[in-house]
Nucleic acid binder design. Structure first.
Length: 491
RNA sequence: GGCCCGGUGGUCAAGCGGUUAAGACUCCGCCCUUUCACGGCGGCAACACGGGUUCGAGUCCCGUCCGGGUCACCA
């Protein structure tokens, strides 16, 4: 089983060089964590900021965890977020394939190359079944086995794994763009499994091989991998390869001690969308969870994707974990909602309006909502009174600030009904002018007249829009019907 | 337990030896007003602790405490 050196030369020859290349490498689990999304964003941002290449790679080496349709979620999310990739399983590229399960042979080749170089060895030990509380490092007997003996066992069909041979003694220093230089004693490192018994690589090994072979210049990942980084360095050194820039990001937390996780019911990107959040708002918020702009831009919070590309610098990435604050996301969402053009808002709001309104045109209702909702999902409840007047209590006619009580309200409605009945052109202007003029005539505050009208028209104490807008949308006939009903209620 | 990392208001955070320690969210007032919002103005609230170094320390060093990560043939 000699090694095919030409193979390695060919692989090396394909590696693109000279510009920034980053990769987002999710394992297909079926949903996008907020933390994952942020990693994807930062990775994409580094590539775009550096006018480089962004690659999508699928890490599916865990055969036991494959989920049907899971890669689709990744493609869809990336597309929705406009985090476009230049190379990947779907679009191809110079260093294809971009799915790890299709690169199986490569990992085996490189693992054996490493054995030959003396930096890895075959291990035939039985799987260590979860030894609890066993922290002590023990020397693997296979480490000192001769290569001839090991190869003979392999020939004989004995199952094996390939382990990294960590040097005894000495220290390894690795540099991280966020955390700086970190030094560790080699003796604290384990002889990591590189190639599993099933012939597939471990995550760590596959990463090193792929990142090198794909010419990745910046490796962005979660800080949970920080402690395995020295082993990566040793691997790069063993192969004689350049070490890429590491960018370790601290996790997005649900509270001070727990990472956000699907298990605990924390929302994924998809969940947030379903809760009425806009993609742009989610991205903007997530960008600022663990990164903040420097200098002049330090106070800026609202960023378009293009602005992020321009402003994003590694120096602004935080070392400490950040707690996800749904209230602040909600605030960002409200800002995005309000800043949309009326047409754009109508488009996103219409489906929600239609959930509870069928008799009236969403285009008339949407303008009342734009400044009044923080999430799209709040809409149906806010406008439910349009289709059907809810049951309501006469108590609603009492309002201190508007100087209203049932008695006053009754008088107001008695004056309003004939006035509205006389309007021929049912426009907001006509209704507004009619009511204002009437208030003047009756010598009452506008609020005193408006309050009972709105209550009778909507049957709710809090409504989007005021009396004028609501009456206008309801139409003359329905308005008069409701006001008369209110009057009856007031006896 | 070993090793690694982190620690500015409740939350996100700026700060790079000298500042009245920014800003945003939340919360609370006030103004605007046709309810509620929007908008405007104002307010509450922080350098984990102890030692150094220095004329001077949130900023540098050491220790303590607290939190996180990791120690898989999972990623």
């Amino acid at each position: 089983m000699g090694l095919d050196y030409q193979y390695f030369e060919q692989m090396e020859a394909k590696i693109p060089k000279g510009k920034v290349r980053t990769r987002f490498a999710p394992s297909p689990t079926g949903y996008m964590h907020v933390g994952n999304l942020r990693t994807a964003l930062y990775t994409w941002l580094i590539a775009r900021h550096g006018k480089g290449t962004f690659i999508l790679r699928i890490e599916d080496t865990d055969q036991g965890r494959l989920v049907e349709g899971a890669t689709d979620v990744i493609y869809r999310t990336m597309a929705e977020c406009k985090l476009d990739h230049d190379e990947g399983p779907d679009v191809g590229g110079p260093v294809a394939p971009y799915i790890q399960s299709e690169r199986r042979d490569t990992y085996g080749q490189y693992a054996r190359l490493l054995v030959e170089k003396g930096h890895a060895y075959y291990c035939f030990c039985e799987k260590n079944e979860t030894e609890e509380e066993q922290f002590d490092k023990v020397e693997d007997p296979c480490r000192s086995m001769s290569l001839e003996e090991a190869l003979a066992k392999v020939e004989a069909g004995e199952p094996y794994v390939i382990r990294q041979k960590i040097p005894h003694g000495g220290t390894t220093i690795f540099q991280d763009a966020i955390f700086g230089d970190i030094t560790v004693e080699n003796d604290t490192l384990d002889d990591q499994v590189l190639l599993k018994r099933d012939g597939l690589p471990t995550y760590n090994f596959a990463n090193v091989i792929d990142d090198h072979l794909m010419g990745i210049t910046h490796v962005v990942r979660g800080s949970e991998y920080l402690s395995s980084a020295p082993k990566y360095n040793l691997l790069y050194q063993a192969f004689g390869w350049d070490v890429p820039t590491y960018v370790h990001c601290s996790p997005v937390m649900r509270d001070a001690q727990h990472k956000m996780s699907k298990r605990h019911g924390d929302p994924s990107y998809e969940d947030l969308k379903a809760q009425g959040y806009l993609t742009e708002a989610i991205l903007n918020y997530v960008a600022l969870l663990g990164w903040s702009p420097r200098g002049e831009l330090a106070e800026k919070e609202i960023f378009t994707l293009d602005e992020l590309v321009e402003a994003f610098e590694l120096t602004g990435v935080s070392k400490s974990p950040a707690i996800f604050d749904i209230d602040k996301l909600t605030h960002f969402n409200a800002i995005y909602l309000r800043s949309m053009s009326p047409e754009a808002f109508l488009e996103v709001a219409a489906p929600y309006i239609r959930q509870s309104v069928t008799k009236y045109d969403p285009a008339l209702i949407a303008p009342l909502l734009q400044a009044r909702c923080e999430k799209l999902t709040e809409i149906p409840e806010k406008v439910d009174f349009f289709d059907t007047l809810p049951e309501y209590s006469v108590e609603l006619f009492t309002n201190k600030k508007s100087k209203c009580n049932p008695e006053v309200s009754k008088a107001m409605l008695e004056a309003v009904i004939p006035m509205l009945d006389g309007i021929t052109q049912w426009t907001t202007e006509a209704i507004h002018d009619g009511l204002i003029t009437l208030a003047e005539k009756l010598e009452v505050k506008n609020a005193t007249l408006m309050w009972p009208v709105r209550i009778a028209a909507a049957g709710k104490s809090v409504t989007p829009g005021g009396a004028v807008e609501i009456c206008h949308i309801l139409g003359k006939e329905e308005t008069l019907r409701r006001l008369k009903l209110g009057l009856e209620k007031l006896g």
